[in-house]
Design a protein around this nucleic acid. Structure first.
Lengths: 238, 238
DNA sequence: ACCTGAACACCGTTCAAGT
DNA sequence: ACCTGAACACCGTTCAAGT
């Protein structure tokens, strides 16, 4: 039961405070809203309301809204770390497969909340889970015989590529029309490319719809493979 | 002179309409605000005010705010196209150098307005200038002997990497403290990495500050080199 | 068809005042 | 030191009503 029809005006003490007013409590509430309603609803006003206070109170614990959003990413990276730790126990697995699995898991985690991927790109990540992912990738690169000098720059490329891919290909939340959105935009894109002026854009016209071929996983596995081959073949200057 | 102290209330017809109420006029005004005050100020309300009307009027010509923001990118890509066309006239230049120059120019254009880079990542670009950049990269890849099948996927990787790099490394506009922001955050990062727990993150600890070595151009040229080597060495599956 | 005033339903952040 | 009410200065979008 517990259905309350008609809002009591100004009922300030309906429930006990869900969480204490601490940094952790604030992040907890933010994660709850994020999981149930998406990042767009994770606003300072909303969090404050959930904690039965005003938005001004949060500024004792957080610097600003972006600071808070950045904190949320690390929590979403937990499953990636879990799978990374599992893979360390099985070092027999090919190092390339290990990196691919790691990055697949990383992308999967971000796809769960693609708005976070955009934030991951702009804010400097330094949470424990993110560091663990970086460390795991470095470990696999070392196992594959990639020298440290090149690994140092390669890990950035690999994670940057994975993050950007999510940002680019995530469903730009439609709020409506759940099915077919991606498929439709693909067909729109295909006809756009087929209609391209061959005189102005000869190479696009020549390749045509093959520019859009393959699914996400296929393209990504090829991309990672190419990235690794390139890293192995390209010494860092001087 | 022309100093008007004290605002006349409701002075609706102070100046003649700056631009006609058309899609082009709207984009023109938006570009003006973008160049002089940054993307954050390019709001529908602000544009409408500049056109002496209300924000509701804009919805006859644009679908929504994101639609408008997407339109602005192509204008910023104009210098890239100019340099691309110049390089086509000098096909003697090494194809790798041509791609590097193209991507340098592309990144430079986005760095002028890094907020646009973020939008470039999320919205499906199909403006004439963007298509021209894609075509130029494809042309250079073909000149380098990269097979069409691989070029089709490689062009995406190259531009995705370039765009993401801008999003990641752009000064997160401080609104204050113009100088030293990047340098300071680098030193903060360096000390963070030096303080990392070697037991938990052995690989990060081993590489240490070398993870952050090199400047943007050095890292980017190496990244493009590695990307190209990888693309040349990695056939697309089946 | 095009345009608009006004409203709706919100934002993040600051600050003086309280405890 | 911590917390708050209230204000400041905004947003994008919708819609009934006008022309």
């Amino acid at each position: 039961m517990n259905v309350s029809q008609g809002t009591t005006p100004r009922s300030r003490r309906e429930r006990p405070a869900k969480a204490p007013l601490t940094r952790e409590g604030i992040i907890d509430v933010a994660l709850g809203i994020l999981r149930s309603e998406g990042l767009r609803k994770v606003t300072l006003r909303r969090i404050a309301a959930e904690l039965d206070t005003g938005p001004a109170s949060l500024y004792v614990y957080i610097r600003n809204a972006e600071d808070l959003h950045g904190q949320l990413i690390d929590a979403f990276l937990e499953p990636v770390v879990a799978s990374a730790e599992a893979s360390v126990d099985r070092p027999s697995v090919d190092w390339r497969s290990r990196i691919k699995a790691l990055l697949d898991e990383y992308r999967r985690a971000l796809y769960r909340q693609p708005e976070l991927a955009r934030i991951a790109l702009t804010t400097q990540l330094s949470g424990p889970n993110y560091l663990m992912v970086v460390d795991a990738v470095l470990g696999a690169l070392a196992a594959g015989g990639v020298p440290d000098r090149e690994s140092a720059w390669a890990v950035d490329m690999l994670l940057l590529h994975a993050t950007a891919e999510v940002v680019e290909h995530a469903e730009h939340q439609d709020d409506e029309g759940v099915g077919g959105g991606a498929a439709q935009s693909l067909s729109v894109l295909t006809s756009q490319i087929e209609a391209v002026d061959g005189a102005k854009y000869p190479h696009i016209a020549r390749l045509g719809p093959d520019l859009l071929s393959g699914n996400g996983t296929q393209r990504n596995h090829w991309a990672v493979e190419a990235l690794l081959n390139g890293v192995l073949a390209t010494p860092r200057p001087e």
